[in-house]
């Protein structure tokens, strides 16, 4: 997953700190001498300050769906508000397409938000006094777009989220799932490059949640936004993410693909999350390739690169010898032992 793309990352977060409490900035500066991040955080806590985000470092590539996951109170909501500068971070830098938005003037910030950024909220954040169409068109109104243009674009986006015909309803007349569709439509109205979603599906019923997740993936497949997605639900994170960052107590403890998180948790905390996750559904055969390729492989059930362990296992249920793994062109690039496959899936039960 280290493809060297020449373009700058969509979002680059460097050494980001958010400390709550009085005189947080000077306190943080003083505490820097204490040593590593843990020592700094401890010193801040001793001064009754709250380090909600500690020394965060990560990048979101253009078109990537980056999920930040953690329990409530782990600082993930604070993190997304720092990146969108809804709150002022205490220290560090956030670059969006190379531009440090923490240095941006108020005017520039408004400009960025009018054209480049979109955000979806956990409890929808709809304006209760506006119709669905007016809600969706609100960012366009801020841009100064004309009435007809706003209406046209609102209907267009509403159709994309499957709400055609409801444009003149008020938010209070809609169900939870419909409200969040409005929220999504509004955040997409100005066609932003960067899309922030703060636990967008957490307030919804499981069934509606799954439905919206699928539609969200469809929308993303066509629009290819650069996304920061917050959730506390590991299943959701694994289902949607290109990469996941796991947070605990304001700290990012691991960043990796869903597969890496499931198969190689860095510590017990991360492992605890993925405990109940059916691994076979997220890990791919690459993760258990044998060293070298055996000369003699009698069976070839057609295992391919990128195939999940579950699928692979069903194909070689009856086999006991190593089988070849092929790439998209059909070239054999490795081998898997069915025994290893079964073992990988059962690793947690032992």
């Amino acid at each position: 997953m280290t493809d060297t793309n020449s373009t700058a990352p969509a979002i680059a977060v460097e050494d980001l700190w958010q400390v709550f409490g009085e005189n947080a900035a000077p306190a943080l500066r003083d505490a820097r001498g204490a040593g590593d991040d843990k020592a700094i955080a401890k010193e801040l806590k001793d001064k009754t300050l709250i380090p909600a985000v500690r020394a965060a470092n990560f990048e979101v590539k253009s078109g990537e769906l980056f999920v930040i996951m953690g329990l409530s109170g782990s600082g993930k909501s604070t993190m997304i508000r720092c990146i969108s500068r809804l709150i002022e971070p205490t220290a560090g830098s956030v670059r969006i397409d190379g531009e440090d938005i923490l240095q941006a003037s108020d005017k520039r910030l408004i400009d960025l938000r009018r054209h480049k950024l979109g955000m979806v909220f956990q409890h929808f954040g709809l304006f209760p006094h506006m119709t669905v169409a007016d809600n969706v068109a609100f960012p366009l109104k801020m841009q100064g777009a004309g009435k007809a243009e706003r209406r046209a674009r609102a209907l267009e986006v509403l159709q994309m989220v499957g709400l055609e015909g409801r444009e003149d309803a008020y938010p209070r007349n809609l169900s939870g799932g419909q409200r969040q569709r409005v929220g999504i439509a509004r955040s997409l109205a100005v066609n932003p490059d960067i899309w922030f979603l703060d636990e967008p599906f957490s307030a919804l019923d499981p069934l509606i949640r799954r439905q919206l997740q699928d539609e969200f993936l469809n929308i993303q497949a066509t629009l290819k936004k650069s996304i920061v997605f917050i959730t506390h639900d590991i299943q959701e994170a694994l289902k949607l993410a290109d990469r996941i960052a796991i947070m605990r107590d304001g700290e990012i403890v691991q960043i990796g693909t869903p597969e890496e998180i499931v198969l190689h948790p860095v510590d017990d905390y991360v492992a605890e999350f993925s405990k109940d996750v059916p691994k076979g559904r997220h890990a791919c055969v690459e993760s258990i390739l044998m060293d070298g390729i055996p000369d003699n492989m009698p069976d070839d059930p057609g295992i391919k690169i990128g195939m999940t362990l579950d699928t692979a296992l069903t194909k070689c249920m009856e086999l006991y010898e190593p089988v070849p793994v092929r790439d998209a062109e059909g070239k054999v690039i490795g081998a898997v032992h069915p025994h290893e496959l079964a073992n990988a899936l059962q690793a947690e039960e032992t």
């Binding site: 809804l86 408004i110 960025l112 938000r113 054209h115 955000m119 909220f121 956990q122 304006f127």
Partner: peptide, 22 residues
């Protein structure tokens, strides 16, 4: 609601627009 306020901010409203329109 904080989120309504934030939604107005993220829509790129100036402070006056946020106050009077939202």
């Amino acid at each position: 609601d904080t989120e309504i306020r934030e939604a107005a901010v993220m829509s790129g409203g100036t402070r006056r627009q946020q106050l009077f329109l939202v």
